[in-house]
Every structure is written in structure tokens, then in C-alpha cells.
């Protein structure tokens, strides 16, 4: 057994454990955190395969951004956990079929010969995975790549358009207006004499009222 094998099996064990806990743990926040752990260990396994760009992108995008926002939402939801767990047997056939389909697909993609953890083809030390991906993306796959980015952009704009509503009770301010405020707009300076002459007749009326 080589050192990398030990690392692989350790990471794989953690990954499987984390994956299992995602669906078995009772608390949705814990489930999301186990998913983070699963992503992180998966990134570790990719690093073993010398796919450092994919590994770091996984941590950067999924752990660093997607899961943070996911946790953000899950933490704020007031979820009744017991209600979520109802109807397990009812959904089982459906879930089983989907699971089976996914398993079959994975077997078809990977094929039998790859199951005996084969080594990644080692590249020379100066080989840069990142530069290579960049080169391929912007030359051979330029059109699909740009198409994908346009689709993402449309999705971003659509998400904003669908959810952005101008609330009537919103008290948001326009910073440009705030900066341009002059002191004349806000205060009025009144000139007053230091001594105010008291009208003797006014004084007597107050006393009479008392």
C-alpha cells in the first residue's frame, strides 16, 4: 500500500460518512454542514488526482459561496422536522427508482475496469492544470463556454426580475441625494435679540387665568 492509497481511503471514508449523514441527520443545518464536509473531502480526492483547478474551484464555488447562502436560508427557515419525516414509505418507491437509475448511469459511465482505484497519469512537474483548462476553454470550446455563461447571465437577471418588488413601505434612501443635502435644506437660523422685552399686559392675562 502506498501513501497516496492511505490518503485516498481516509478521504473516501470521510466522504461516504458525510454523505450518509447528510440524509440521515435530523437537523437540516447539520445536514447542510455535512454536505460542506462532503464537498471538502471530494475536493481532497480531486487533488489526489492532480486536478487542482477543479478541486479548488469546488471549494471556492460550492463551499465558499453556494453552501454559505444555502445555510443562510436553512438557518432562517422554521422547519417542522417531524412533519418532513412523514410519508417515508409513500415516497420510497419513487426515490428507489431514481436512485437505481443514477446508479445504473454511473456504472455505465465509469465502466467496470475503473473500479480498482487506478492511478492518475502523472504529468511533468511544470504541467499546469489550470492553464491547460483555460487554453481549452477559450479555444476549442469557446462557443459552448460563452453560451453557458450567457445562459447563467440570463438566469441571474431573471431571478432578480422575478423577485424584485418595489415595496411601498420601504424607507430606502438615495445616497446621492443625501450627499447633496445643503444645510439650508435642513435648518433655518432665526435671528433673535439677546433680551426679549416683556409685554406687561400679556403677563397679567396669564395670572388672571390661573
Amino acid at each position: 500500500m502506498v501513501f497516496t492509497d492511505v490518503v485516498f481511503y481516509t478521504l473516501a471514508a470521510i466522504l461516504l460518512f458525510a454523505g450518509l449523514r447528510v440524509i440521515t441527520t435530523r437537523n437540516p443545518v447539520h445536514a447542510a454542514l455535512f454536505l460542506v464536509l462532503a464537498f471538502f473531502t471530494a475536493a481532497g480526492i480531486w487533488l489526489l488526482l492532480e486536478a487542482e483547478f477543479l478541486a479548488i474551484a469546488l471549494v471556492l464555488v460550492y463551499v465558499g459561496a453556494v453552501m454559505v447562502l444555502f445555510l443562510f436560508v436553512v438557518m432562517m427557515l422554521d422547519i417542522n422536522i417531524d412533519k418532513l419525516r412523514e410519508g417515508f414509505w409513500e415516497y420510497l418507491p419513487m426515490a428507489g427508482t431514481i436512485g437505481l437509475l443514477m446508479a445504473v448511469e454511473m456504472v455505465m459511465v465509469l465502466g467496470g475496469k475503473y473500479f480498482g482505484a487506478t492511478k492518475a497519469v502523472s504529468k511533468p512537474a511544470d504541467y499546469s492544470n489550470t492553464a491547460e483548462i483555460g487554453r481549452v476553454l477559450y479555444t476549442e470550446y469557446l462557443l459552448p463556454f460563452e453560451l453557458a455563461s450567457v445562459v447563467l447571465l440570463v438566469a441571474i437577471v431573471a431571478a432578480i426580475v422575478l423577485t424584485l418588488r418595489d415595496r411601498k413601505d420601504s424607507k430606502s434612501m438615495n445616497p446621492a441625494d443625501q450627499v447633496l443635502v445643503k444645510k439650508q435644506d435642513r435648518i433655518r437660523i432665526v435671528k433673535m435679540g439677546a433680551v426679549v422685552e416683556v409685554d406687561p399686559s400679556a403677563d397679567t392675562t396669564i395670572e388672571e387665568k390661573k
Binding site: E52, F53, V68, L71, M75, N129, T130
Partner: peptide, 25 residues
């Protein structure tokens, strides 16, 4: 001395937020 050093830095700094989120929750 890794080639994807800048990406690694970005990944690590983006993980730092978990400490705050988990502590708060």
C-alpha cells in the same frame, strides 16, 4: 509553491465565513 496559489488563497478565505456562521447559529 503551487501553480494555483491564488485560487487556493481565494478558496481558503471564502471558507473562513463558516466560523462566524456556525458560531452564530
Amino acid at each position: 509553491n503551487i501553480d494555483a496559489g491564488l485560487l487556493y488563497i481565494l478558496a481558503m478565505t471564502s471558507v473562513a465565513v463558516y466560523g462566524v456562521i456556525i458560531a452564530g447559529w
